[in-house]
């Protein structure tokens, strides 16, 4: 991350510790889009992501004054968001999640990349692959490849050791690559079937 961004984030942390609403507004403006995108892709559903993003920012507001002055703001925000999603999954397993209908509704395809003219087909396919792999692998890929966190930051956000984070990223990439390969093979077979 650039030094000026780190300095700006440090100033924002100081503002949040003072419960300065202007600092909060700046944090929100700077990171709400990234946090939203992260949660939509992690949860795979916009309705669930909407609940989680609300819980995330409420928690940020509630605990802002308890922040340590050396807090890595961006990593902390993603840690809160990731923990909200983890908690949601735990409650969903027990059947006690607030978004009960999510288990019976059809899958939300998430962000409609086809509508974005600039989105390349490969990127859209990778997005689809992200939804197909396991949640633990999805979160590590989102944090490192999409959000640009380095290994120590990913480890801190997920709460594991740095070497474990690297291994998990490697396994996640392999799972996604295998999915993409299977998908490509399926498409090739489909095209050959049509030609015959």
């Amino acid at each position: 991350m650039r030094a000026d961004v780190v300095r700006a984030d440090a100033a924002l942390v100081a503002g949040l510790r003072r419960r300065d609403p202007r600092a909060f507004d700046e944090v929100y403006t700077r990171y709400q889009g990234r946090i939203w995108s992260f949660l939509v892709r992690l949860a795979g559903r916009r309705d669930v992501a909407e609940d989680l993003v609300q819980e995330t920012w409420m928690q940020v507001a509630r605990y802002a004054e308890r922040l340590d002055e050396n807090t890595d703001l961006r990593a902390w925000l993603f840690t809160v968001a990731r923990n909200r999603h983890r908690s949601h999954r735990r409650w969903a397993l027990l059947g006690w999640a607030r978004s009960e209908p999510m288990d019976v509704e059809p899958e939300d395809p998430g962000p409609d990349l086809e509508d974005t003219t600039a989105a390349r087909a490969e990127v859209a396919l990778v997005h689809e692959g992200l939804q197909a792999i396991g949640a633990a692998h999805r979160e590590v890929l989102l944090l490192s490849a999409v959000e640009g966190f380095d290994a120590p930051q990913v480890a801190a956000v997920i709460g594991i050791r740095e070497d474990a984070a690297r291994k998990r990223l490697s396994r996640a990439r392999a799972e996604l690559a295998a999915w993409l390969e299977t998908r490509e093979a399926g498409k090739r077979n489909e095209i050959q079937g049509v030609r015959r």
Partner: peptide
């Protein structure tokens, strides 16, 4: 490709 994913 993952890094190129646009903001939702």
């Amino acid at each position: 490709d993952l890094a190129a994913l646009p903001e939702v």
